[in-house]
Design a binder for these strands. Sequence first.
DNA 1: ATAGATGCAAAATCTTTGCAGATTC
DNA 2: GAATCTGCAAAGATTTTGCATCTAT
Lengths: 154, 154
Amino acid sequence: MTNLSMTDQVTQRLRSEGGRMTAQRKLVLAALEDLPGHPTAEEIHARARQDDPDLHLSTVYRTLRWLEESGFVNPCWFAEEGRAERFDAQSSDSLEPGHYHFVCRLCGGVIEFAEPRLADVLVSFQESFGGRVEETDLALYGLCKSCLPVSAQA
Amino acid sequence: MTNLSMTDQVTQRLRSEGGRMTAQRKLVLAALEDLPGHPTAEEIHARARQDDPDLHLSTVYRTLRWLEESGFVNPCWFAEEGRAERFDAQSSDSLEPGHYHFVCRLCGGVIEFAEPRLADVLVSFQESFGGRVEETDLALYGLCKSCLPVSAQA
DNA sequence: ATAGATGCAAAATCTTTGCAGATTC
DNA sequence: GAATCTGCAAAGATTTTGCATCTAT
């Protein structure tokens, strides 16, 4: 995968779009990496505040929203618990890439494919969801490469 | 399946626990059945208000919470959209993109989730593959958050 | 120097709750 | 008739925003 810490990646991305790495943002990132599970904005704030008591909650929210838009964290909610949003810092560990099926509606052909990134997505779902995913059943339906032009003529 | 309408089932359940079927509850149920997708409390309120302009939003919330506790609706959130809670009247509604299911093997619960990154992966698969993906059918099986500790004790 | 971030306070949004009066069984 | 619901208004909880000030580049 990558051996850059999330903070490094974020700094890079920030620079590339004219943004700035600030002490506050570093604290939010550190909190995200430190805290287990899926902390709320409040929890991140509390953790980061241990290092800077002046850090404001609105700054945490602003940072989290930016991280969300930039794809560094996923927001998620758990129905069982309170109604506060939670944030999932994407872990970089991967699951074995399974194989999936594509079924063509015209010729009926079945194409097997492996899509490693899919496993990553599933792992991140598993974490954001708190349970354990034991089996995944994915099938895609549509038109295969050779049938696509045929169907366009119809 | 069952051929009782949701309203009938709810009435039955309500009676069995000393509750009462009221005009307001009927309106909320009707709205849930009428509205496509996963309406928010506000949307349900707006719809039900067409028939009773005096229906209060807090009544809608109270009814939805009761329906939730009784298992008639599932609360769910979609990350892409606003931050308001949404309610799913267990429709057998199929595969709108970004809408997948997790089935718990222990409690049988079905959890809906949206995983925007999944769509990205599928698009990139489609491109490398040359055909057209028209429908995706993804189901995950495993243990949900509350059943995970239970199964560990066994 | 200056574009961009922060802290603050105030507002916006979403959801819950206590209570008096109305309704269902 | 009595327990249950409802509307209302007010409070709670969570998240966003405008602005003066501060800071990283």
